[in-house]
Every structure is written in structure tokens, then in C-alpha cells.
């Protein structure tokens, strides 16, 4: 297979080492859909020595805030975030899995108080890391990160 060429980003963020298949979820977290005007480059199922295969998302002009990084860490815990300026990586960092998530995951239990008229902010606590699993602070339902529905 020919080496994959993905155009370089001048200024923005490159999210690398996303587990293969999770790029669309990352796009959703970033709020990238039809109304989005900056350049976005998505590569999926790229060969990776670390992960076997991986996805990459490059977004021009975007610098990600802490909340967004938290959300990415849930679905792509191995992701690395590269900040690019003038085609050069000026900062490289990993994401770290938060111990607690407030207002980020939607509880899959429909009978949970957080899904009632009560307007209680969802609150999950990390229960286990491999695979990543969170427990609803309220109804105690266990949620696998990969299947989690994010509140966006």
C-alpha cells in the first residue's frame, strides 16, 4: 500500500492515535458538522505501530479547551494532541482520563434521576481503566466508555 499523504495543517490541532473507527465520534465532540467552515482532514484506518491501525483528525484554526480534551479522552484515551503553528508542532500532549465526569456522559438508564424532569447534571465516576468504564453516581449503572453517549 502506498504511504498515505494527508495534507499538512498550517495552524491548528492534530489529534493523532485515535483508535481506529472513532474519528467520527471525535468530530462530533469537536462540533464539526455541516455548518463548520474551517478545513478538517480526517484519516481513518491508518497503519500504526502502537495501535495496529488508527484514525487521525486535523482541524485548522482550532485550539481545544479542557472540556473538549476530557471528552476526547473518554473515547480515545491513547490520543495525542499536537498543536501546530506555521506547519510546525509547537506542543505535543496526551489526554488524561478524568476520575469524574460532570455533565459529559448521558446515563443510558432511562429510569435514572438524571434523565428525569429533575434537571440533575449527570455525574459519572471512573470505575476501571481497561476497558474504560464509568459508574453513574446516582443510579450506579455501569457504562463502557466506547458505548457512552456524550452530552454535546
Amino acid at each position: 500500500m502506498a504511504e498515505l499523504k494527508v495534507s499538512k495543517v498550517k495552524r491548528g490541532t492534530v489529534i493523532d492515535h485515535i483508535r481506529a473507527g472513532m474519528a467520527p465520534a471525535v468530530l462530533r465532540i469537536l462540533g464539526i458538522d455541516r455548518g463548520f467552515s474551517d478545513v478538517v482532514v480526517v484519516a481513518m484506518n491508518v497503519k500504526s505501530s502502537q495501535l495496529g491501525s488508527k484514525d487521525i483528525v486535523k482541524v485548522e484554526n482550532q485550539i481545544l479547551d479542557e472540556e473538549t480534551l476530557k471528552k476526547i479522552s473518554i473515547i480515545a484515551p491513547q490520543a495525542t494532541i499536537n498543536i501546530v503553528k506555521e506547519f510546525e508542532i509547537v506542543e505535543k500532549r496526551g489526554v488524561s482520563l478524568p476520575k469524574e465526569l460532570r455533565g459529559i456522559l448521558k446515563c443510558p438508564n432511562r429510569n435514572c434521576i438524571t434523565n428525569a424532569a429533575e434537571k440533575v447534571e449527570s455525574f459519572f465516576v471512573c470505575k476501571q481503566e481497561n476497558p474504560i468504564e464509568f459508574r453513574c453516581h446516582y443510579c450506579e449503572e455501569l457504562v463502557e466508555a466506547e458505548r457512552a453517549e456524550l452530552i454535546l
Binding site: N111, I113, A116, E118, V120, Y138, C139, E141
Partner: peptide
């Protein structure tokens, strides 16, 4: 209470 998580709340 009939909703799960109500007691924790």
C-alpha cells in the same frame, strides 16, 4: 422513590 439514583440525589 421510583427513579434510580433518587436516594443519592
Amino acid at each position: 422513590h421510583p427513579l434510580e439514583g433518587s436516594a443519592r440525589l
